[in-house]
Nucleic acid binder design. Structure first.
Lengths: 224, 224
DNA sequence: TTAAAGACTTAACGATTTCTTAATCTTGTA
DNA sequence: TACAAGATTAAGAAATCGTTAAGTCTTTAA
């Protein structure tokens, strides 16, 4: 089912959009602020994210930036909600990786057809899209969250999968612990020194030792 | 400016893509066949290369293979153009080092967002990145933290790598011990007199004596 | 609701690599 | 020749990583 995440600080709007989209058979999630939005996005991997631009604390633009920083959301469509006259914001919105904007107020009919158009666009991209990466003899499917090697399917827990995705995204590049830590765990989480090692170990356990190489004092890399 | 190379044997498509991408502010180069493509790629080093799969003589797959054989293009993104139903070709495309494929026919809007998404992928890494240094017959890859000479890959421990980077950053310039000491070890570390010598020795051991020259009483330099 | 399973993290200890030191050699030069 | 500066070597120290097991938390299923 198509998952849509709506982010707005006004519950009225949230309810209105939510109601109309649900009626059309979409699976709708809502968030009242950018921070919550990031959390939910991480969990449910929505196909479409609708962000209100004007929000306290982290605004839509900021949230979009944050989302786009994380490669896992590259295939999600991000649309902004704007009042009819916020021109500048609209331009900025597309600069930070947004795909479209929807102006308020909006009639249910228009909303629905707009959303469907957006998703249709995504589908053509997505159907044959780089939701998977091929590195060496591994095929990593980000959408299905699993790895294919030959005809065996390897399932990985989230953190391990993300770690692998990161390393495999630039085969050969050395990722420092800092970098890994920052991109997989996020800058606001504090974990101990051995956490990364343990995850690397698990990956090696499941995939074999030949993929991930350690450079002491520097970092790890996906070796071809 | 972001440089894009488009390779297709049909001028219509070339024009169409070229027009739309130029309108978005990209610097666009075109080639009518694989051979031409290799030449142009060598000259302009595009960030993104879009290859039509179906071409007479050297097809897209072949061209991609050739490109990927050369490590200079490691940081270029290669995307394929395919008709909507060439499934086998698509899988093959990713096997030979392609990063994505774009299906024809494609709408300008979709093309643009697709291209931007692809480029976004590399931006974070490219921004801070003069990844390669080529000095003499050595190619130093700071991102992958290794040295290439011919087709052999030389891995170095951290300090040795940093030391080599420093010397190679200004070939011919003489670095005093003070300078080396300060830049590689940092001002807050205290190490003995022979430490630098030992590292120089190890570099010579691994690379050969001809690269680093000693100037007694003055310092060391990377000799061309 | 509780039990079971799984995911994630931590901590302790062991293993390995890298770095540094110190002792001894070489080499060029006054 | 004697001295100074660097080269070489091997050994020990230090840094870093690997591994394991256990604990916490979350999710799933009965």
């Amino acid at each position: 089912m198509t998952k849509i995440l709506i982010v707005d600080d006004e519950t009225d709007i949230l309810d209105f959009l939510s109601y109309n989209l649900k009626k059309e058979g979409f699976e709708v999630f809502t968030a009242l602020n950018g921070k919550k939005a990031l959390e939910i996005a991480a969990q449910v991997r929505p196909q479409l994210i609708i962000l209100d631009i004007m929000m306290p604390e982290m605004d839509g633009i900021e949230t979009c930036k944050k989302l786009r920083e994380n490669r896992n959301y590259d295939d999600a469509i991000i649309a902004f909600l704007t009042a009819r006259d916020e021109d500048l914001a609209q331009i900025k919105a597309l600069d930070v990786g947004g795909d479209d904007y929807i102006t308020k107020p909006i009639k249910p009919q228009v909303l629905i057809s707009r959303v469907k158009a957006l998703l249709r666009r995504n589908k053509t991209e997505n159907a044959e899209n780089q939701s998977f990466m091929t590195v060496g003899d591994l095929r990593i499917d980000r959408q299905k969250v699993h790895i294919l090697r030959g005809d065996e399917t390897i399932e990985l827990p989230k953190k391990e999968f993300e770690l692998l995705c990161l390393l495999a995204s630039k085969p050969g590049k050395v990722f420092t612990r800092e970098e890994i830590y920052h991109k997989v765990w996020g800058s606001d989480v504090i974990v101990g020194d051995r956490t990364i090692d343990v995850h690397i170990r698990k990956l090696r356990e499941k995939l074999g030792d030949e993929y991930i190489k350690t450079l002491k004092g520097i970092g790890y890399k996906f070796d071809l």
